[in-house]
Simulated assay, not measured.
Amino acid sequence: MKKLSLSIALMIAAGAAQAGQFCELDGTEVFTCTIKGGTHGVEVCNAIWADGTKAAYGFFKSNGTVEKEILQDMATITATPWNGMGNFISESVTFESGDGYAYEVWWGGERTEGAVAMGGINVFKDIELIADLPCDDGTVYSDLSALIEMIEAAQ
């Protein structure tokens, strides 16, 4: 256990955002990546620690300081599953903060061996795109399909 804690501490000390800095380390993370050269990170998780069927969005700095947190009922999350066509798979989920802002977390990738997943966050204010934050290359982990299934079941 000490070895694991030391490894995590060294990764954080290196200045890169790490998975597990927002979601509880309980296997509920369905999307993670670093942004802006590892100075920020984003995580989406099945918020099993919250009452009801909810998902959580967290945007944080590499030191773990959370800049934006949204806990939302799955029945109210907008989900866009892959349409099943073409060689490019993409999915997204959109969290709304209640103040006119929405945060669309997306991932995509070619359906070819060795393809690297890409992803990011699109930030909207009153349905207008105001920021596009791409994930750092090679840092995307996504199982949004599982979350989308839970969202569809909740709706």
Rank of each mutant, 00 (worst) to 15 (best):
G109T: 12
T139M: 13
F31C: 02
T53Y: 06
G119H: 01
D126W: 00
E43Q: 10
A146T: 15
V93Q: 05
K2A: 13
S7D: 02
E96P: 02
L129V: 15
A47R: 07
G120Y: 07
T65W: 05
L147M: 10
E128M: 00
G52R: 06
G52H: 06
D143F: 11
S142C: 13
A79G: 11
A117M: 01
F22T: 02
D136Y: 03
A9N: 01
G52I: 06
A102E: 10
A9Y: 00
C33Q: 06
D136E: 06
I89R: 04
V42K: 06
K36F: 09
Q72P: 01
V140Q: 02
F22G: 06
A55N: 08
N83H: 07
F31E: 04
T139P: 07
I89N: 00
A56Y: 05
A50Y: 04
C23V: 09
N122F: 10
A16R: 12
E104C: 05
R111I: 01
M11L: 15
E128T: 05
K2Q: 15
T78L: 09
A13N: 02
W82T: 11
D137W: 07
I151W: 09
K54L: 03
V44D: 00
A16W: 08
E43F: 07
C135N: 15
I77M: 09
I48L: 06
S5A: 14
